[in-house]
């Protein structure tokens, strides 16, 4: 935490999705790959510890401001809907994790609808919506178990939002979806608009 200078940019991203869709695995994928580009001496273990379902990243200086991001996995169980609402209310961006298995399609759609309700409750300006990126998990499973990404796109109403596929256990697509949502919310924070290219 800096003590003066330009106001730091502290960002909060919630990882939303159905129960057992891969939210915590995505966070663990991020956590486990931290420091892959640094020597151990630059990556103190304490800074990267993952004591709860959240991960903190120090992004360094972005656009002239010290930037950090906290990622929280919201409970996937419907019984915790109130908790999910609270977390989405305080978020700067959302990563929606959809389970790629065909048998989980209905669960994904239910979670997407719940997210839509929570986003509507925030009362954001429709012209300036909260950035959401989609991650289709478990793409490493046998193809006969999976639903095509295009089907998920349609079912979840992805539209023009960023969408990545991958396998969080092996880290595939993890950095990409994080970068996609961070880019959107930094554009939003900069006043350039999430949709501006």
């Amino acid at each position: 935490m800096s003590e003066s200078g330009n106001a730091p940019l502290a960002l909060t991203i919630v990882v939303f999705g159905a129960s057992r869709s891969g939210k915590t695995t995505l966070l663990r994928g991020i956590h486990d790959r931290l420091g892959a580009g640094k020597d151990d001496a630059d990556s103190p273990r304490e800074q990267h510890a993952m004591p709860l379902d959240w991960v903190s990243l120090d992004l360094g200086t972005i656009g002239g401001r010290a930037a950090s991001v906290l990622l929280y996995a919201v409970p996937g169980v419907v019984a915790f809907d109130a908790t999910r609402r609270v977390l989405v209310h305080g978020a700067d961006g959302v990563i929606f994790v959809a389970d790629s298995q065909a048998t989980r399609l209905d669960d994904n759609v239910a979670a997407r609808n719940a997210l839509g309700d929570h986003l509507a409750a925030r009362g954001d300006d429709p012209a300036d919506p909260l950035p959401v990126a989609f991650f289709y998990s478990k793409r490493d499973l046998p193809a006969e178990l999976l639903v095509a990404p295009a089907v998920l796109d349609q079912a979840l109403g992805v539209g023009a939002a960023p969408r990545m596929t991958g396998d969080a256990v092996r880290g595939e697509g993890v950095r990409e979806v994080l970068q996609a949502v961070l880019t959107l919310l930094l554009r939003r924070a900069s006043g350039r608009g999430a949709g501006d290219a």
Binding site: L34, T183, L186, S190
Partner: peptide, 13 residues
Amino acid sequence: FERELDDSLRALF
């Protein structure tokens, strides 16, 4: 800032 974000994430990951 987008280039700096890319550099930062590459440094982290």
